[in-house]
């Protein structure tokens, strides 16, 4: 479904991503794990067109994303749940969700998707009139995820969904990710919490300062000594 080939990205003079290739197959849940500053978020931003790539190709079902305007990418069925949620704080919960369906014109479809999101996240239904800025961190994460689901995407990019959440909420969020995965959505997940990420993923890439240090099945990686020492605290 998604293929990143030999990607190079610069922040000014800093070579942030150094020739990375990643592949996510249909229906897979793939994780990018690694320390702060390894370039995980940069990769997602480049896929979504928020950052330009210096060289390399990003293909979604064979379509080259870099040749597109960033705001058109969602039309191809790729939605992005950004790091730090980025909900619209001064809009209500329901307005936020409706913004998620901005590209849809069919009101009936929007209402259906709204119901689908509320079914996934009953807490959001309870708070549909509340301003998003007043939600707790976990609720904001649910809202950002729900908002991304409003277009029925084929694929989700999820950036640090567990960041800043309490252990109970982290579990809840990971359960939701697994649920979405089981419902058939392809997911590329970026996480600092390598242990949890590997536990639910099919495959994973370990990033170190802009290059891929290791890749393989999540199970194999979680049993690898180097990964265990560096990322799993064992």
């Amino acid at each position: 479904m998604l293929e990143v080939k030999d990607l190079n990205v610069f922040y000014g003079a800093i070579h942030a991503i150094k020739g990375i290739s990643i592949k996510v197959n249909d229906g897979e849940l793939v994780s990018l794990v690694g320390a702060n500053g390894a370039g995980k978020t940069t990769i997602l931003h480049t896929i979504s067109g928020l950052l330009p790539a210096a060289t390399g190709e990003i293909l979604l079902d064979g379509q080259n994303l870099q040749k597109m305007q960033a705001n058109k990418i969602i039309n191809l069925g790729l939605a992005h749940v950004p790091e730090g949620r980025h909900v619209f704080a001064r809009l209500t919960v329901e307005e936020n969700l409706r913004m998620g369906a901005y590209i849809l014109k069919d009101q009936k479809k929007i209402s259906e998707n709204l119901e689908m999101v509320y079914a996934h996240f009953p807490r959001l239904r309870e708070r549909y009139k509340q301003l998003a800025g007043t939600l707790s961190g976990g609720e904001q994460q649910m809202l950002a995820t729900g908002r991304a689901l409003m277009t029925n995407p084929k694929m989700l990019l999820m950036d640090e969904p567990s960041m800043g959440l309490s252990p109970i909420l982290v579990k809840e969020i990971f359960a939701i990710i697994q649920e979405l995965h089981e419902s058939g959505i392809t997911i590329l997940l970026v996480e600092q919490n390598a242990k949890m990420a590997l536990a639910i993923s099919d495959r994973a890439y370990v990033l170190e300062t802009g290059t891929i240090a290791m890749e393989g099945s999540a199970k194999a990686l979680s049993e690898d000594d180097r990964v265990r020492k560096a990322y799993l605290g064992a």
């Binding site: 979504s48 067109g49 928020l50 305007q69 960033a70 705001n71 058109k72 969602i74 039309n75 939605a79 992005h80 950004p82 980025h86 909900v87 619209f88 704080a89 001064r90 809009l91 307005e95 409706r98 913004m99 998620g100 901005y102 590209i103 908002r147 991304a148």
Partner: peptide, 24 residues
Amino acid sequence: TKLGRAMRCVSEDKEASILMGINV
């Protein structure tokens, strides 16, 4: 209106607006 809401979104968060498909 949809356009009006898009204006409020862009004023609040341009990156998230792009991800929603808004032409900023």
